[in-house]
């Protein structure tokens, strides 16, 4: 009995600590905050909408499935099961393509210091903290017309 109580005393705080840590971690991972570079007005709309979607749906960003309306509004593309946001980045000398790929963000071919990027939603907070990016412009919806 004593042994059981002792084990319980040891396990409970661990479980509680772990659970709290996970909850805190989830909350932190779900937080969409301004990063290390400026973003376009549309991107700010997107960040606010994404935060609201996460809060309302109580999903985590890692497993977030956007509503059809949200996906259409921001032209999200589902690639290999993951929803991606696309946009242009302007870069400086510190930019590292390798670093972007490490967080699963896929850069397109460059044109001068501008290139396209496909950002999985789960990697969006990490993307916003990347060095070497001087501006992010959310891709605009374009019609054939």
């Amino acid at each position: 009995m004593k042994l059981f109580s002792g084990l319980l005393m040891l396990i409970l705080p661990t479980i509680l600590f772990t659970r709290c840590g996970t909850a805190y971690g989830q909350k932190a991972a779900n937080k969409i905050e301004q990063g290390s570079f400026p973003v376009s007005a549309d991107t700010k709309f997107f960040m606010m909408d994404l935060q609201n979607e996460l809060n309302t749906s109580k999903q985590t960003l890692k497993s977030f499935t956007p509503t059809k309306q949200f996906a259409e509004k921001y032209s999200l593309q589902k690639i290999k099961g993951k929803y991606h946001l696309s946009g242009f980045i302007q870069t400086d000398k510190r930019f590292s393509e390798k670093q972007l790929r490490r967080i699963q963000v896929f850069p397109g071919q460059p044109s001068g210091n501008i290139r396209t990027v496909m950002v999985p939603l789960s990697a969006f907070p990490a993307f916003l903290k990347q060095k070497g990016i001087t501006y992010f412009e959310l891709s605009k919806k374009v019609e054939v017309y």
Partner: peptide, 10 residues
């Protein structure tokens, strides 16, 4: 293209 300016650039 997908209806997006970046896809056009690509």
């Amino acid at each position: 293209y997908v209806f997006s300016a970046t896809n056009i650039a690509d």
